[in-house]
Computed example of a mutant assay.
Amino acid sequence: MNPRRKKRMFTLIGVVFGIGSAVGLTLYALQENINLFYTPSELINGKGPDLEKPFIGQKLRIGGMVVPGSVVRDERSLDVEFKLVDTGPLVTVRYKGILPDLFREGQGIVAQGNLIEPNVIEAFEVLAKHDEQYMPPEVAEAVKGIKHEKPKYYTNGASEN
């Protein structure tokens, strides 16, 4: 093989290997920062045509309506637990911290956190809408037709599921 061709071939192999390594490392680094949006129904039943469910420990965002009567605050700490609903099952959200001023029962919120049980999220951020007209697009699409009232299967602080 001609020395000039040999040099070009090794250079080309080096460039392809370098670009492939850079893309692979970038995708690996971004894997931890990707958080998918779910509604309570998608979290329990699965999302997409394959009904994929998130795995325990996965970082995600969840949006829905806060179930009236479900907010439980710990008197000795900043721990808060509440339930979210869209059109189906309930999902429990646990949060340690001060909730936004606009947070209230019967309102749409988005929580970001980790899945710790199939229907329990340990949130590290809770966002509430800032006025009556605004709702995050994902939540608005997910909760179309939901009224600000207790679901039929939710009574006296416990679900009958």
Rank of each mutant, 00 (worst) to 15 (best):
E105W: 08
E105H: 09
E105N: 12
G106I: 02
G106L: 04
Q107S: 14
Q107E: 14
Q107V: 09
G108C: 06
G108E: 00
G108P: 08
I109M: 04
V110H: 01
V110E: 15
V110Q: 08
V110D: 04
A111K: 11
A111H: 11
A111R: 14
A111S: 13
A111G: 11
Q112M: 09
Q112V: 11
G113L: 06
N114H: 05
N114P: 01
N114G: 02
L115P: 00
L115I: 04
I116F: 03
I116N: 12
E117D: 12
E117G: 03
E117Y: 15
P118D: 00
P118S: 02
N119F: 13
N119V: 12
N119D: 13
V120C: 10
V120T: 14
V120W: 06
I121S: 00
E122S: 07
E122P: 00
E122D: 10
A123Y: 00
A123S: 06
A123M: 01
F124G: 07
F124T: 09
F124P: 00
E125G: 01
E125D: 15
V126F: 11
V126A: 05
V126D: 07
L127D: 03
A128F: 04
K129Y: 02
K129M: 05
K129E: 02
H130M: 15
H130D: 03
D131R: 01
D131C: 13
D131P: 04
D131Y: 01
D131I: 00
D131K: 00
D131S: 10
D131L: 00
E132N: 03
E132L: 03
E132M: 06
Q133C: 07
Q133F: 15
Q133M: 15
Q133S: 15
Q133K: 15
Y134G: 00
M135R: 10
M135H: 14
P136R: 09
P137C: 04
P137A: 09
E138V: 07
E138C: 06
E138S: 09
E138Y: 08
E138H: 08
E138F: 10
A140S: 14
E141D: 02
A142F: 11
A142S: 15
A142Q: 11
A142I: 12
V143Q: 02
V143M: 08
V143K: 03
K144S: 04
K144F: 02
K144W: 09
K144V: 11
G145I: 05
G145C: 05
G145S: 05
I146Q: 05
I146Y: 03
K147W: 00
K147Y: 00
K147V: 09
K147L: 15
H148T: 13
H148V: 11
